[in-house]
């Protein structure tokens, strides 16, 4: 099955950067009410505006291989990178996942995330693949970084 690429299975079996760590500015808990998948996520972001850096994303997740892998890839691709770049990755991931297969995903932008391109064929699983990202953007809100998100929305609208 093309949905379950080796990379996804690896990430889901050995989630990268898993576990909850300090320091953090926000901790959020997200669930997918249709299947009961859960993720608790902490983020640690330093610097302001375009200088902001995602220092750490730590999490405790329970879920299907798609949601586990997606959260693991999110952490792997984002830790240590500028927040603006991470948000660009988020936009590209979301576009790919909701494209019904038209957007194969750009490895340059979303890295290992391209392994999740098969999910776009299964609308019921898109939520699984976005669970970690929803937690991440919510945590940005909670930690007072709405500005970065608003900028993103303006940029794409």
């Amino acid at each position: 099955m093309d949905l379950y690429q080796e990379l996804i299975l690896e990430h889901s079996k050995r989630p990268q950067h898993a576990g909850l760590r300090e320091p953090f500015e926000a901790e959020v808990h997200h669930v997918n009410p249709t299947c009961g998948d859960e993720v608790t996520m902490r983020i640690h972001v330093t610097g302001e505006g375009s200088e902001a850096i995602v220092e750490d994303i730590s999490y405790d997740a329970l879920g299907c291989s798609i949601s586990m892998a997606s959260t693991s890839i999110l952490a792997e691709e984002s830790i240590g990178r500028p927040l603006t770049e991470v948000l660009t990755t988020y936009e590209a991931m979301k576009a790919m996942l909701t494209s019904k297969g038209e957007d194969p995903g750009d490895e340059e932008v979303i890295g290992d995330g391209v392994a999740l391109s098969g999910v776009a064929q299964y609308p019921a699983r898109v939520k699984c693949a976005l669970l970690g990202w929803m937690a991440f953007t919510d945590a940005l809100h909670q930690s007072g970084r709405q500005a970065a998100l608003t900028q993103l929305e303006e940029g794409t609208s």
Partner: peptide, 13 residues
Amino acid sequence: GVHAHDVGQVLDN
């Protein structure tokens, strides 16, 4: 060791 969502996906296929 396998989430039900993943089991269901294999069956669905």
